[in-house]
């Protein structure tokens, strides 16, 4: 219930964000409100933020009206500028900030980020190492270091860093998710499965984790894994109210794979009619939404002996 309420308010906020964006872009005022809302929602709309924010910064009277809030604006604009590869703007903003707050960690982070944006990896790493010396538990900096490794394409180092990070901050599920995806990309499915289990433990009602776990298990193969995978596809169906087509396909594929493995010897699964139900729903959905593909789907289901 609470989650539903939260979702509703975020949707409302997002609508408001877009409305304010429209208004601010066309000089209708509300620029500062838009930027505040974007910051609060952590919306990543760099091009708009850059345009609106820069206009506000260049307007001296508006800027001084913000008083001490203007530094936040500088930071926001710098980030947006880096996202848009407007490195000159970012550099100017960061220069102002570092003059205002010499020795600040937050500014140091921005400076390192600028190195990253320029692609000067070793410089960026040195800057991050310097921050970590003073504050070894800066989660953002740790994550940036992982991001650098990822940007350089060195996946084994990414895995290494992520594991070190998770050893310390083991309740950070975003990091678990990143690690899971990295393992999948490296085809290390056993490890990926562990990560997805961890994610399911942390947030058991998110269907995305269930289906990702099921997919990893299905990819690994083997009777036991396939049976487990089918169960997790089923839980995804339950959590999404049967709206997830991928999960429906998953149930069908798992069933046919299990049947192939057991060659019909294992009859204990017969009690369940999940697969035929899933096939029916699939067929119905295709009839409603993509009638031209119905022959394809029905022949596929026939091959799987599900209809």
């Amino acid at each position: 219930m609470a989650a539903a309420v939260a979702a509703a308010t975020t949707a409302e906020d997002e609508a408001r964000l877009l409305r304010l964006e429209e208004q601010a872009e066309h000089g209708g005022g509300g620029a500062w409100e838009y930027l505040c809302l974007a910051r609060r929602l952590r919306a990543r709309r760099p091009a708009h933020v850059l345009r609106v924010g820069l206009a506000l910064l260049n307007n001296a009277s508006a800027r001084s009206g913000l008083a001490s809030e203007q530094w936040t604006l500088y930071e926001q604009v710098a980030m947006a500028a880096m996202d848009c590869q407007r490195l000159d703007v970012a550099k100017d903003c960061i220069g102002v900030l570092s003059k205002q707050f010499p020795g600040s960690t937050r500014v140091a982070r921005l400076e390192a980020l600028l190195f990253e944006a320029k692609g000067e990896w070793s410089e960026a790493e040195r800057a991050y190492a310097l921050i970590l010396e003073n504050n070894p538990f800066d989660q953002i900096v740790h994550k940036r270091k992982i991001a650098i490794a990822k940007a350089q394409g060195d996946m084994s180092i990414v895995v290494d860093y992520l594991n070190k990070y998770l050893e310390l901050f083991m309740a950070d599920h975003d990091a678990w998710r990143e690690l899971a995806e990295t393992y999948v990309s490296l085809q290390m499915y056993k490890q990926a499965a562990f990560c997805y289990e961890e994610l399911i433990l942390a947030q058991p009602t998110i269907p995305l984790y269930h289906i990702a776990y099921a997919e990893v298990l299905y990819t690994m193969g083997g009777l036991e894994n396939l049976q487990t995978a089918k169960k997790y596809y089923a839980s995804t169906i339950q959590l999404t109210g049967g709206k997830n087509t991928r999960a429906l396909f998953g149930v069908c594929l798992c069933t046919s794979a299990i049947n192939q493995l057991t060659k019909g010897r294992n009859r204990e699964e017969e009690g369940s009619e999940l697969q035929s139900l899933a096939a029916e729903v699939l067929l119905k959905n295709y009839k409603q939404q993509a009638p031209s593909k119905v022959p394809l789907i029905s022949s596929m289901l026939k091959n799987m002996k599900l209809s």
Binding site: K230, K231, A234, S235, I237, Q238, G242, S272, E280, V281
Partner: peptide
């Protein structure tokens, strides 16, 4: 809890059909 959820999933699909 997963076997239980499997049964729930069947109910969900029946509802949909």
């Amino acid at each position: 809890a997963l076997p239980k959820m499997e049964r729930h999933a069947e109910d969900v699909l029946k509802q949909l059909l």
